[in-house]
Amino acid sequence: MSDLYLGGELLAEVERNGFVESRHSGSVVVLDADGEVTAWAGDVLGPVFPRSSNKPMQAVGMLAAGLTATPAELAIISASHRGQPAHVASVRGVLADLPASALGCPPDYPLSDDARDAVVRAGGERSPLYMNCSGKHAGMLRTCAANGWPLAGYLDPAHPVQVAIRTGVESLAGEPAAAVGVDGCGAPLLAVSLRGLAAAFLRLVSAPSGSHPRLVADAMRAHPDLVSGTDADGHDTQLMRAFPTLLSKIGAEGVMAAAVPGVGAVALKIDDGAARPRLPVLSAGFARLGFSLGDFSDMPVMGGGVRVGSVRTVW
């Protein structure tokens, strides 16, 4: 596997037409409101690459380095957006007078089917602006500009903006990064444990009002449509709409982290990188804290346009 991972336990299974179609193992950790581990499965202390679940922490590092941004801008900086028109406009807003050509993320079409189709019908081409991590990259560039740091080379782990971001991530996670990789967007990617990831999310929602961590958490919860979009698979958006105090951020390769102030936090990774077990496992984690995610605990499996099974946790 591409991510650092040591393996876990059986967490979920997919049932179709009365038969178990697949099983998914992984690891999950549950922290209470005081940050104490109350439940876990698998390896929650070994390092993983949280992928885009790191974005809220990276945004905190940017704020600490001098970034100034509105709540909507902080939300898109922390987002894995779908390239919908509002997302692209928000990224342009973060860039302000900085050129889009400075973005170091690869050109792409929007992840949203409707947005992609609109671009193609209009004769548009792939653009770094459409790439789902462009908000994060725009935030990095804006942080560089605020400090007079060079825009060129901003993705080098030794660049001042990446040094500042690493400080922010490590401070929130409460542990040093175990490794530095390269994310799908080309940015440096820091490996931490699932316990560290859950602790970071709990600190984001529990920080004092007006502090950098709280500014990011409040921005994402105030603008959930910018975080993952309004498509059916925009689970961060759906969760934060349904539970306004909850902070959620998915990551590639089966990662997810979420926290609720006064309740606790859950972080998980599915071994094979599958996305569909994430919500049932997350729901099982919050159930151990007495917090119900309702319908998110039972994800349907469709066949021929009707429900023929479900994805359920076995943890």
Rank of each mutant, 00 (worst) to 15 (best):
Q84Y: 05
A72G: 13
V281C: 10
P188N: 01
S80D: 01
L190I: 07
D113I: 07
K55E: 02
V60E: 03
S112M: 00
V314E: 11
G104K: 13
A89D: 11
G174Q: 13
D117A: 15
L172T: 05
V29M: 04
D218T: 14
F296I: 04
V44D: 12
A145G: 09
L31V: 03
P213Y: 04
V29A: 00
L226D: 06
H137V: 01
L226S: 02
V205L: 02
S310V: 08
P188V: 01
M302L: 15
L10R: 11
A267K: 06
C133A: 02
L63M: 01
A33G: 14
F49G: 05
A164T: 08
V266P: 13
V180F: 09
D3C: 15
V28R: 13
S283L: 09
V263G: 09
G18S: 01
L129W: 07
R278S: 06
E170K: 02
G229D: 05
A222S: 15
A274T: 14
E9C: 08
E170P: 11
S211N: 11
R82M: 13
V180G: 06
C185K: 02
A217Q: 03
R221E: 00
G262K: 10
H159L: 01
A39R: 15
Y130W: 05
G290Y: 08
R82V: 09
P176K: 03
P213T: 04
A198Y: 14
E15I: 14
M240D: 00
G148M: 07
G234V: 01
L141P: 11
V192M: 05
S25I: 13
W149L: 01
L63H: 02
S206L: 08
S209Q: 15
R203D: 13
A267E: 03
P106C: 01
E36C: 09
S297D: 15
A69C: 12
T313L: 12
G7Q: 11
V37H: 03
V20H: 11
H81Y: 04
D231R: 03
L204A: 10
P157T: 04
D156W: 06
A191I: 05
